[in-house]
Design a protein around this nucleic acid. Structure first.
Length: 1046
RNA sequence: GCGGAUGUGGUGGAAUUGGUAGACACGCCAGACUUAGGAUCUGGUGCCGUGAGGUGUGUGGGUUCGAGUCCCUCCAUCCGCACCA
């Protein structure tokens, strides 16, 4: 029997689907191990070869842990709410649920074809009402909670209400919005609406008016992590600041815990660093400066309170609320002009242009808190409204931006650190000793910071303060395809939907667009609302439902049930006031809502009474190994930690971190093929290109058509050199045009295939070494010269009606290769399906691992895949003589045992380190040795099959069966490593002279260092090399090396 | 600018953590079998040199009997953050 990977894939995937050997046990005596892959969003493009990299690694670990006796939870599901499906729905009218369903089917088929050992019975989808019921439930918990700083934990809101009723908010130490003090009496005198409004200041999920990232193109707000350089991460649309009423999450309450928690996690340093940067903790002081001649005070935050005597001016952000109130009449015009100018600049412009110093003087002065001397107050857009207090005390001697500002506007730069050289820039160093600083003089910086804060606190002018860059997370999205926020409004005040009425399911709507009045798409659901007694209602559907009549017995049953229920509703109605229908919140939750707790749902995915049972959570705990991309560093991975800590605070979880260990698989990049694009800006550019290329041609585009022109890379390189084109060259774009890789073979484009498969290239003129190629015809350079053609229009005919283009297929059009992100739009996607259909799933799995370290980014290159395929065939051949299965029961020899046990050990160590590329090498070494030894012994091959089975499960299941086992190899036990088999009697010592190896000596391993030395110095070859000299020293490391020092 | 990571043959990459640099694989070269081969098998393959030998892990220096590995300097590439007070 020949190795037939296709057949084995089919056979074993069907077998696994039927027998489910990978189902995790809910109750088990075995230790648990939870391996999780990051939730995929099922995009329409399907999986490319980069996606499974992490899945293969985690699958190997899962299968290995099962062999090691663990009860393994290795689930998979879909983060199935999201923008792309909705964008598609807007374009086509197709319900996003349908698109999502289709995409999931593709993902599932592809994942199955790779042979993953997922426990599919635990699959979850965020868009499934039985799932998002619990997302909504968690939202309600967040809504009904506040953050108590004394306990440093979230607490249910009822306790806060009780406190308000008894003592007002005087003693409440909460992480909340600024709330004026009120007494118990005041609280109790307020009506429900007023009380609710105040409570929103405390809730962890709260509604407030705030500046948000509004993306007009997507018609929704975005969280900070979804905005990159002023553009949306998805789609790259511009984002602007907008003041809006928004649901937000008080993640800032958790800033310190999110920071501290990082220390105990086995996550990559770069990932932890990204989270630290994002949280952005800085220590310093908050102090107030009185504005002279007014009742106002400007609060500033500074990390350098020691430099307080170096303050020579203050700067407020242009948006700062005090600006309009303190600006003097004479400065009013200038200040207003500056504010207008600052507003007109987009965030992106502002960021791009950090070098230009700009600002305006308000005319007002503040009072130095220690010296009382006047300090001019300026405004400037280098001060950000969103950070700290939106105002700074400027110390030009100690801060470069302040120095720039002072230098530009001619403000004084007093030195406060001894020996500062301030003519070229500020001294930002935290080393040095204070001067010109009153009570701080002579103190080193670190000491002075402490002293300054102490003094400020003593005088009541400031206090020590820790500031974070982290902002609260905007939670509402003005979109359809997400979880409805379970909130309804009564008189404009938000109230929570009752727990028993969850889930609030998505209503059907006619179009996935905002309403005419600008409300989110959910505003289109007419008659959709909440009845606090009956729950979610859709009055239009209720009427419509009568028309879809079931038949037969089912009809009769429904009829009776309906009548009975109707009777009770009627009865109930008699004793109750008429039900009201309240409008729901119209925004939906962001993509990260469902993914912030999904790892918990896998523990108990079908539970209808809780997000997961306590028993399941206590058994499975948190994730032991989490595998996914680093792009989630500041989004998903921060939010999931936040929700985990929150659920821990409320007593729902016994742990407060979602994943102990996390590995980022490196991105697999694509290798793109690119040609150069020529600008066909005008008729004359055709002439120009001809001249540049020393081709006597024009390209005329006529009046009606514009042809795109691609230039062969080879041609460009022959003209401009391999370095590519001068960026300033107007004729040929320096950003080349991608060509689909399936139409290119080793840099040579198959033009016929290209224009046949991709209609967008049909009207392209290809300029190559032979001439011009257009729609399967070639106008050769010779023809161009022969006919002395001044210009060439593909449509042109000579007097006989013949085109100058001749039919020809010989055109050498070449591309250059470039490594970049794999994406559909770049036409460089390699689909795993193609690899699998050629080599089978096991080869793909092995090859992806063999490519290099898991965490490194690497370009996909199919060149080496033959090697892994050959390896599998060699492995198969160990079990087969010709076509027949042939395994002997003879006792193994020492070298055979050595090869086996070296592999058992190496693979075990490697999997623990996730160094899977070296494991594959080890398998190859082992099989090479066994082939050399002609080993077909069961005692060797059987354990080896088990070891290999986590990497190449299909072939191993088959051979396991052929070896006579009735049960899946996943129930086998990982072979025990026996070190005795690796012990060698002798070792070939490298003998080096001054560290350079010169010869080898085979010596017994039982010899001591002294014995080895004696043999070495007496050896004729060594004596010869010493040429009579006595070695100064001989270093012997047993079983390693001998070094003779001369 | 700040922070993090990484630099090893023609290529992907290994190196027991200070002990024979280049394992394993691709590619390439030679040979065998073949009508043929982009199939299979065998051998070779860091570079220079016919050879002995020399040289070699981005650069330059240092520690050491011994450095790809540790320390310092510079250079390059990638990633993240970026007026954060």
């Amino acid at each position: 029997m020949q190795y037939d990977p296709k057949e084995l894939d089919r056979k074993w995937q069907a077998e696994w689907a039927k027998k489910k050997p990978f189902a995790a046990k809910d109750n088990s005596e075995r230790p648990k191990y939870y391996v999780l892959d990051m939730f995929p969003y099922p995009s329409g493009a399907g999986l490319h070869v980069g996606h499974p990299l992490g899945y293969i690694a985690s699958d190997i670990v899962s299968r290995y842990k099962r062999l090691k006796g663990f009860n393994v939870l290795h689930p998979m599901g879909y983060d199935s709410f999201g923008l792309p499906a909705e964008q598609y729905a807007i374009q086509t009218g197709q319900h996003p649920a349908k698109t999502t369903e289709e995409n999931i089917a593709t993902y599932r088929r592809q994942m199955d074809s790779i042979g993953f050992s997922f426990d599919w019975d635990r699959e979850v989808r965020t868009s499934d009402p039985s799932y998002y019921k619990w997302t909504q439930w968690i939202f309600l918990k967040l809504y009904d909670a506040w953050y108590c700083k004394n306990a440093d934990a979230a607490r249910p809101i009822e306790r806060l209400v009780k406190e308000f009723e008894q003592h007002g908010n005087r003693d409440v130490n909460a992480h909340c919005d600024e709330t004026p003090l009120f007494t118990a009496h005041e609280w109790n005198s307020w009506d429900g609406a007023k009380q609710q409004t105040v409570l929103l200041n405390y809730r962890i999920a709260y509604l407030s008016e705030a500046y948000v990232n509004w993306c007009p193109a997507l018609g929704t707000v975005l969280a900070n992590d979804e905005v990159k350089d002023g553009f949306s991460e998805r789609g790259g649309h511009p984002v602007e600041r907008k003041l809006m009423m928004q649901w937000s999450m008080r993640i800032t309450a958790y800033a310190q815990r999110l920071l501290d928690g990082l220390d105990g996690l086995e996550w990559s340093e770069s990932l932890k660093e990204q989270q630290r940067n994002w949280i952005g903790r800085s220590e310093g002081a908050l102090l107030g400066f009185k504005v002279q001649g007014s009742r106002f005070k400007v609060d500033v935050f500074t990390t350098r309170p020691d430099t307080i005597f170096g303050v020579s001016f203050m700067v407020l952000a242009p948006e700062h609320e005090l600006v309009s109130q303190i600006t003097t009449a004479t400065q009013k015009a200038e200040v207003e002009a500056y504010i207008a100018k600052a507003k007109a600049r987009s965030d992106r412009d502002r960021m791009a242009d950090v070098k230009t110093v700009s600002g305006a003087f308000t005319g007002a002065y503040a009072e130095h808190p220690f010296t009382g001397s006047p300090i001019p107050i300026w405004i400037g857009d280098y001060v950000l409204a969103g950070y700290g207090t939106g105002a700074v005390m400027s110390v030009p001697s100690g801060d470069q931006r302040d120095w720039n500002f002072a230098t530009h506007f001619g403000l004084p730069i007093p030195s406060v650190i001894e020996g500062s050289e301030l003519s070229k820039g500020a001294n930002e160093s935290k080393e040095g000793v204070l001067e010109n600083s009153d009570f701080l003089n002579g103190l080193p910086v670190k000491e002075a910071i402490k002293r300054a804060i102490a003094k400020m606190e003593a005088l009541g002018i400031g206090k020590g303060r820790i500031n974070y860059r982290l902002r609260d997370a905007v939670f509402g999205r003005q979109r359809y395809w997400g979880e409805p926020i379970p909130i309804y409004y009564k008189d404009g005040i938000p109230y929570p939907v009752k727990e028993e009425h969850l889930p609030v399911t998505l209503p059907e709507i006619d179009e996935y667009l905002p309403t005419e009045t600008g409300e989110p798409p959910l505003g289109r659901a007419k008659g959709w609302g909440y009845d606090p007694k009956l729950g979610v209602r859709n009055t239009q559907n209720e009427q419509k439902a009568d028309t879809d009549k079931p038949r037969g017995f089912q009809f009769l049953l429904n009829f009776i049930v309906e009548k009975v229920r109707g009777f009770f509703v009627w009865l109930k109605g008699l004793f109750q006031p008429k039900n009201e229908l309240f409008p729901f919140e119209l925004s939906t939750m962001p993509g990260w809502a469902g993914s912030s707790w999904y790892f918990l749902r896998y523990m108990d995915p079908k539970n209808d009474g809780a997000f997961a049972s306590k028993e399941a959570i206590d058994y499975w705990q948190n994730v032991d190994l989490y595998v996914g991309g680093s792009e989630h560093a500041t989004g998903h991975l921060l939010y999931v930690r936040f929700w985990t800590k929150f659920l821990k605070d409320l007593g729902y979880l016994p742990f407060d971190e979602p994943a102990k260990k996390l590995v980022n698989q490196g991105m697999i990049q694509g290798v793109s093929d690119k040609a150069y694009r020529h600008h066909s800006r005008s008729e004359t550019s055709g002439a120009l290109i001809g001249r540049e290329m020393e081709l006597p041609i024009f390209l005329s585009f006529g009046d009606k058509r514009v042809y795109s022109i691609l230039v062969s890379a080879e041609l460009v390189h022959s003209m401009f050199g391999k370095g590519g084109i001068d960026v300033d060259n107007e004729l040929i774009q320096s950003t080349p045009q991608n060509v689909p890789i399936d139409c290119v073979d080793k840099g040579l484009v198959n033009l016929e295939k290209l224009i046949a498969d991709h209609s967008q290239f049909r009207d392209t003129i290809f300029l190559c070494s032979e001439g011009l190629w257009y729609q399967n015809t070639l106008l050769s350079n010779q023809d161009i010269q022969k006919h002395k053609l001044g210009w060439v229009d593909p449509e042109y005919r000579d007097e006989h009606g013949n085109s100058y283009y001749r039919s020809s297929s010989s055109a050498t059009f070449t591309t250059i290769q470039e490594v970049e992100k794999m994406s559909k739009s770049k036409w460089n996607v390699v689909n795993p399906d193609d690899i699998i259909s050629r080599y089978g799933a096991d080869t793909l799995r092995l090859y992806e691992m063999f490519l290099g370290p898991l965490e490194d980014a690497k370009p996909w290159n199919t060149n080496g895949i033959e090697g892994t395929y050959r390896f599998l065939r060699k492995f198969w051949n160990l079990f087969h003589a010709g076509d027949a299965f042939s395994v002997s029961d003879d006792a193994p020899t020492k070298p055979e045992l050595k090869a086996l046990h070296a592999t058992i050990k190496k693979v075990e160590d490697d999997i623990e380190k996730l160094s899977l590329n070296t494991s594959v090498s080890q398998f190859m070494i082992c099989v090479n040795e066994l082939t050399e030894l002609k080993c077909n012994k069961r005692a060797i091959l059987e354990p080896l099959t088990i070891v290999l089975s986590s990497f190449a499960p299909h072939i191993c299941e088959e051979l396991w069966q052929q070896l006579g086992h009735g049960e899946s190899i996943s129930f086998a036990t990982y072979p025990k490593f026996e070190a005795a088999h690796l012990v060698e009697d002798s070792f070939s010592y490298p003998i080096s002279f001054n560290g350079k190896t010169k010869l080898q000596l085979e010596l017994s391993t039982s010899l001591s260092a002294a014995e080895v030395e004696a043999i070495v110095v007496a050896h004729p070859e060594v004596i010869k090399r010493l040429e009579g000299a006595t070695p100064k020293k001989v270093i012997v490391v047993v079983k390693r090396i001998v070094n003779v020092v001369v």
